[in-house]
Every structure is written in structure tokens, then in C-alpha cells.
């Protein structure tokens, strides 16, 4: 099989890209990963622990990065300028004039977190003690201290669900599906670190769809006495002491509710990246109404797109947990392998 060795370029060195690189390499292909940051790992690098079992994100990432060896080449700090195709060869251009050629290209660019300042009434970037779920993770990893801007230990922390998700007013109608469980996981982590703090979640619907997610929800209630308030945050304002005043409709109580909080955490939705739009406009890859890539078939072929030789994997086709991202990456590897075998046999016959 070694004779069939083919070049594959993977765009994106996050979990999906790394997992696919490993699988493709084991299937006998030479792989080059193009990563825009200085190191691989994507959003996983900034995460503390993973739901539902609280394993260390860093530990998982280390195991994945460890597999980069042999015929896997990693190029970091990449800025892709163009992708072109001649015959069966794809040329990926990057960093002012550099080019790499490949038989197949796997797009595994993941997602962006919603820019919370677009939801202005929540006050992100305006009020000091409004932070994002990503910023909270960096507090957990120790890059920042788990405190208000003035250094005070927060007595009450409010989590806001669906920020940038399920919201026509910011242009994203889709459910990001991962924020519910992320919020519950983070709320539990806060209670472990600050047992005296009061934590409340403002949610519309809790979508605990994965295995053991519901257990996490129960744990949050049972062990950590976290309050769940069914109502989307309407607006927030800042008190003179820097704390926040939250206004919502406590829909199950049937009355508007006003709550003071020292820290407000916005659970950011998954949104498509600039690269999605570029691939759509310049390379004809089909984009869904949510802005993510649309594969050829939502059931039978989740990794191919209409453009021959281009494949997609991971959260760039819609929000996914790490578990599903990795499974999808392995599935894409197999799809690419089949594709490369076909092109080879076609070439031999010719």
C-alpha cells in the first residue's frame, strides 16, 4: 500500500485536524496540517476541563499532539490566501507566495465564538464584570484570577445562555447545542472553587442531549444548589459599585425579575468563521443558512462537499462536542482514503 502514498492538506490544527491527520497517516498518506495560530490545538488549548466527565482538556490535547510525527508535517502561523485546482491536484497558497500541493484537502477550521459585543444590551465590552464563557475558562486554567475586575471574590455569578445562538437579532438562528452543558459544567466548577458563591443560570431551554449531560444538570441542582431561571436575559445595567443589574422575565414564575450579580458570564454560541464565507464565495463550497458548510448528504455523506477533492470535518459543519468532532474527523479520513484509492485506480487504468 505504501506505493499509493498521497499528499493530503488539512486546513486547521484543532482537534478535528489533528485526529484526521493521525488517521490518514495510519492509512498511509502524507499529511500537512496548516494551522493559523502558533501552536496546534485550536479552542481546546484554552479550555480547562471537558464535560461531562471533567477530564483535563490539556491532557487530551497532549495525547493528540503527541501523534504528530512521521509523515505528518505541521506548519503554524499560516494565513491562507488562495486555493486552486488543476486536474486532480489542489494548490493551497499561504503566507505570501508559499504553496503546497495535495490530492485532497480537508477543511477542519472549526468555528468562531460569537462576538458578544454585538449583543449590546448585555453590556459586554461596556461593563467591566461581563465576561464570556471562554474568559471564564482562562480563569479556571489560572491565566486570570476568578474575581471581579476590582479583584473582589464574586458572591453571585449569573450565567446567560444563548448569547449569539437562537437569536435572529444578531443573525444566528441556530442552537449551538454545546453551551447549555458548558454552562452547567462551568457553574459546577465555580461552586467547587467558591462554595459560598451563589450561581444562577438564565436559560430558555436546557438542551442536555448528550450522554451523562443530564447527570451534570442533576449534580448542579443536587450538590451545588445552582438556581435555574427560565427566561432569556433582556438587558443589564451597571451599578455604581461595578456590579450588574440583570433584567429578565422569570417566565415560570410569571413575573419580571431583577437580580444583582457581581459577575455575569455569557455562554457564547458557535458561529461560522471568515474562512467559511471565503470558501463559499471563492471555492463554491456550499454554505447553509447558518453559515456553516453543508456536506453533500446530511446522513449518508457528512464529510464531502460538492467540490471534488475537498472534504470537511468537525465543528465547521455545525456545532459539535469534542467526542463528535473526533468521530467526524475519523469518518472524514476514511472518506478521503476511499477517494484517494479511487483516483489512483483511475490513473492506473488510464
Amino acid at each position: 500500500m505504501r506505493a499509493l502514498k498521497k499528499e493530503v492538506v488539512i486546513i486547521g490544527g484543532g482537534p478535528a485536524g489533528l485526529e484526521a491527520a493521525d488517521s490518514l497517516n495510519k492509512l498511509g498518506h502524507a499529511v500537512t496540517i496548516l494551522e493559523k495560530e502558533g501552536k496546534p490545538g485550536g479552542k481546546l488549548s484554552n479550555w480547562h476541563k471537558l464535560f461531562p466527565d471533567n477530564v483535563s482538556a490539556d491532557g487530551i490535547l497532549k495525547q493528540m499532539v503527541h501523534k504528530i510525527s512521521g509523515d505528518i508535517q505541521l506548519i503554524t502561523n499560516v494565513k491562507i490566501t488562495k486555493i486552486s485546482r488543476e486536474g486532480t491536484k489542489h494548490s493551497v497558497w499561504f503566507n505570501e507566495g508559499k504553496c503546497i500541493q495535495a490530492e485532497a484537502v480537508l477543511v477542519a477550521v472549526g468555528f468562531d465564538l460569537f462576538n458578544a459585543s454585538l449583543k449590546e444590551e448585555y453590556g459586554y465590552g461596556i461593563y467591566d464584570n461581563v465576561i464570556t464563557s471562554a474568559e471564564l475558562e482562562s480563569m479556571f486554567t489560572g491565566q486570570k484570577s476568578l474575581a471581579t475586575v476590582t479583584g473582589k471574590t464574586p458572591e453571585r455569578i449569573a450565567f446567560i445562555h444563548c448569547v449569539g445562538s437562537r437569536d435572529e437579532k444578531v443573525g444566528f438562528r441556530h442552537c449551538s447545542s454545546m453551551c447549555c452543558v458548558t454552562g452547567v459544567k462551568q457553574a459546577i466548577e465555580i461552586k467547587k472553587r467558591l462554595p459560598a458563591a451563589e450561581v444562577m443560570m438564565f436559560y430558555m431551554d436546557l438542551r442536555m442531549h448528550g450522554r451523562f449531560y443530564e447527570d451534570l444538570y442533576l449534580e448542579a441542582q443536587e450538590k451545588h444548589h445552582i438556581q435555574f431561571i427560565r427566561g432569556r436575559l433582556s438587558e443589564s445595567s451597571e451599578n455604581p459599585d461595578g456590579s450588574l443589574l440583570l433584567k429578565a422575565d422569570d417566565t415560570l414564575a410569571g413575573s419580571p425579575i431583577k437580580v444583582k450579580a457581581d459577575l455575569m458570564v455569557l455562554l457564547l454560541g458557535f458561529v461560522p468563521t471568515d474562512f467559511h464565507r471565503k470558501m463559499g464565495e471563492e471555492f463554491g463550497v456550499e454554505i447553509g443558512s447558518d453559515g456553516f458548510f453543508s456536506p453533500c448528504d446530511a446522513h449518508l455523506d457528512t464529510n464531502s462537499v460538492k467540490t471534488n477533492g475537498i472534504f470537511v470535518a468537525g465543528a465547521c459543519t455545525g456545532a459539535k462536542s469534542l467526542e463528535y468532532t473526533l468521530a467526524d474527523a475519523r469518518s472524514a479520513s476514511l472518506k478521503i482514503h476511499e477517494f484517494l484509492l479511487q483516483t489512483t485506480s483511475a490513473n492506473i487504468l488510464n
Binding site: R230, G231, R232, L233, S234, K247, D249, G254, S255, P256
Partner: peptide
């Protein structure tokens, strides 16, 4: 409508009366 209550949470009339659009 998904009964999220954004409307009644922001409503200035709801803040000072029994009025609630959502309900």
C-alpha cells in the same frame, strides 16, 4: 414565539405594572 420573556423583561410598563406581553 418561544416564550423566552425577552419582551416582558425589557418592558418599561412591565417594570411598574401587572402588564406582561409574553403572558
Amino acid at each position: 414565539c418561544i416564550q423566552c420573556g425577552s419582551c416582558s423583561g425589557t418592558c418599561p410598563a412591565s417594570a411598574i405594572s401587572s402588564y406582561q406581553f409574553r403572558k
